[in-house]
Design a protein around this nucleic acid. Structure first.
Length: 258
DNA sequence: AAACTCCGCAACCGCGTCCTA
DNA sequence: TTAGGACGCGGTTGCGGAGTT
């Protein structure tokens, strides 16, 4: 099965998005949501394929995306989870609030993989070539945006925030604290579910620190209750993975019914 | 100052999976 | 049961900018 390239139709635009296109997409999704990505560009009046719209939205325009620096804790989380999960970026993203799988993938390929290789080859890390390298991941918000343009400025509050939003970007609950990942590794999964089941969900540290994160958490919380949302990665063969993970953690009794 | 090289990131592409008729 | 549509994921690419020579 699968699908052909989305640009198969003539007249479908490719390449970088313009601020005008972003505005149209944001306005449309805020107004109508995105139940059908394929139909969306036509209805919104965009000369893009649905796939491109979805990617743009999930990786860049969504209101709950955390842009800018990866913290040390986030980096460590990525490294640890990559050891366990491999290149399952969406699963890794599920533990980092506001980070997209694409962002994490880029982070890994450009920074973390090199760093690990370097550490293996030479435990005393050599200084990178450029100063930029020394502060990798410290890209400023301004730097990470297209020139002269900040989607946040034209972004409207999104009441839609539909459940499919949650596929790549995570809940704040997961990232409660990762100061000590080994500790988090044991508590993390139960924390995630306890947040899910907690009436105090929006009282999580992350949510308290970040109103937007608070929105994320409560949003997901509600979504999960209403729609029975469960990330696709939890299904199929992945069920075995999660099952064993939880079993190993001895927390199986806390699992919700699947 | 100019040319060249390298890096980071946004976006594209192809495939797998899920859903439905 | 199965074929086709739709979505999501992971790999890859290409461009712009920063750094180096």
């Amino acid at each position: 099965m699968g699908r052909g390239p989305c640009g198969e139709k003539m007249g479908v635009k490719k390449g970088p998005w313009t601020p005008e296109e972003d505005q149209i997409l944001i306005s449309y999704i805020n107004l109508k949501g995105h139940a059908n990505w394929r139909a969306l560009p036509k209805q919104a009046g965009l000369l893009r394929c649905g796939k491109s719209c979805r990617l743009r939205w999930t990786n860049y325009l969504r209101p709950d995306i955390k842009r800018g620096n990866f913290t040390k804790e986030e980096e460590e989380t990525i490294i640890e989870l990559h050891q366990k999960l491999g290149n399952r970026w969406s699963a890794i993203a599920a533990t980092l609030p506001g980070r997209t799988d694409n962002e994490i993938k880029n982070m890994w390929n450009t920074h973390l993989k090199k760093r690990l290789n370097q550490n293996k080859a030479n435990p005393i890390t050599k200084q990178p070539r450029s100063t930029k390298m020394q502060t990798y991941g410290q890209v400023t918000e301004k730097e990470s945006q297209p020139k002269n343009y900040d989607p946040n400025q034209i972004r409207l509050q999104s009441p839609q925030h539909s459940f499919s939003d949650m596929s790549s970007v995570t809940t704040a609950a997961a990232a409660d604290t990762v100061d000590n990942f080994s500790e988090m590794d044991e508590r993390f999964w139960t924390d995630v579910f306890s947040y899910d089941n907690s009436d105090e969900v929006s009282g999580s540290p992350a949510a308290a620190a970040d109103p937007q994160a608070k929105f994320q958490v409560s949003s997901l919380h509600g979504v999960e209750n209403v729609y029975g949302y469960n990330s696709g990665m939890h299904e199929g063969n992945d069920m075995d993975f999660w099952y064993h993970l939880f079993s190993a953690a001895g927390k199986l009794q806390e699992l919700p019914d699947f």
